[in-house]
Design a binder for these strands. Sequence first.
DNA 1: GAGATAAGAAACGCAATGGTTTCTTATCGG
DNA 2: CCGATAAGAAACCATTGCGTTTCTTATCTC
Lengths: 200, 200
Amino acid sequence: MTSIRAARQRRRGRVLEAAIFDAVLAELAEVGYGRLTMEGVAVRAGTAKSTLYRRWSSREELVIASLGHVMPDAGGLPDTGDLRSELIAALGALADVLAGPAGRAITAIIGELDRAPQLRAAAHEKLIDGRILGTRSIFERAAARGEIRAGAITPYAIKAGHAVVMTSRIIDGVSPSRRDIEDIVDQVVLPIMGPPAAHG
Amino acid sequence: MTSIRAARQRRRGRVLEAAIFDAVLAELAEVGYGRLTMEGVAVRAGTAKSTLYRRWSSREELVIASLGHVMPDAGGLPDTGDLRSELIAALGALADVLAGPAGRAITAIIGELDRAPQLRAAAHEKLIDGRILGTRSIFERAAARGEIRAGAITPYAIKAGHAVVMTSRIIDGVSPSRRDIEDIVDQVVLPIMGPPAAHG
DNA sequence: GAGATAAGAAACGCAATGGTTTCTTATCGG
DNA sequence: CCGATAAGAAACCATTGCGTTTCTTATCTC
């Protein structure tokens, strides 16, 4: 896995840091946060402990920096005008993240959130908040088009689809397939929002 | 926290094991699974490492046994004939578990599930499966009474409420209050199941 | 090219764990 | 009350990790 470098090649700056961040993610996936060590990261990254301590003073700092580096920003989703396909795109993007290497790092970190508020803040910022906002926008546009009841747009309703996707990955260990995402949208998210005229 | 025992009091059997299990949960909450050590558990429980190793040969075994001991069995919920209150009771019971000491232990363990299939199996058995079955029963009884659409009872629909409660606790770090549970039931679960005649 | 910078290797003392073993003796069953 | 059982204390050695320091030298800037 770790590429073999010529013994006398020294990396610096971004290249070095990228190698370190990758090593952190790999360690998170392999041994978890609690057993992640500076030594382990250094060995895996092919660098020295002193190099790590020059940049980060603790495991927590290092892990937070790594998360920030690896988490794809919840890129703005396009306004296609089609509620169902937008929801599938949004939840599918979440499932894709959770299925990849970032997903393994995230699950490894979740058990620490109670003990490390900084980690929780980082997780929210990188993984959650943007997606919730994006989904709210999807709903609000659909409500403006008259496709759903505006009153159905509540915090829990917005979170429901994400919650199902995340628990599938975290608790069940299965990242939903595209087909699963469609089922979640059709069987959970869309029914929650209901048809605009059905509340009589 | 740890009660002081008279130095020469020796505990055996159930009493001793209960003290050990409590110590495991406390250690899980305090340092997490990855940093839980046999030494730490022994000290906290006021016993000796040898006593632990006589019973469990590894951390994983010990933790699984502790989980089995502390998790309240998802006791069968009464058939009251009222869908909404039954859902509130079911999700409220889950929230209560997650809010208590068992909840801290559970969140501490979640990050290990990818690496420890035995833990995942134990978590499902003790925390998830029974509750999902219970909720399915609630829905089926309501469908039989004609209160909801039978076709709405799908695996994801059944899981949705639990997923919202669990992500609140695990990701947000907040165990839903009774009021939150009502909102979740009213804004998520009940809308998913829909009125019986609304699918025309 | 020369000088500044920092990567990487190595070793440091120290503390914590692992898992085992030995021994004493409290507590059990009968 | 006796004998079997096992709890708890202690010490064992090997390993791992911490966080720091020292030193060499590759790579950058000018």
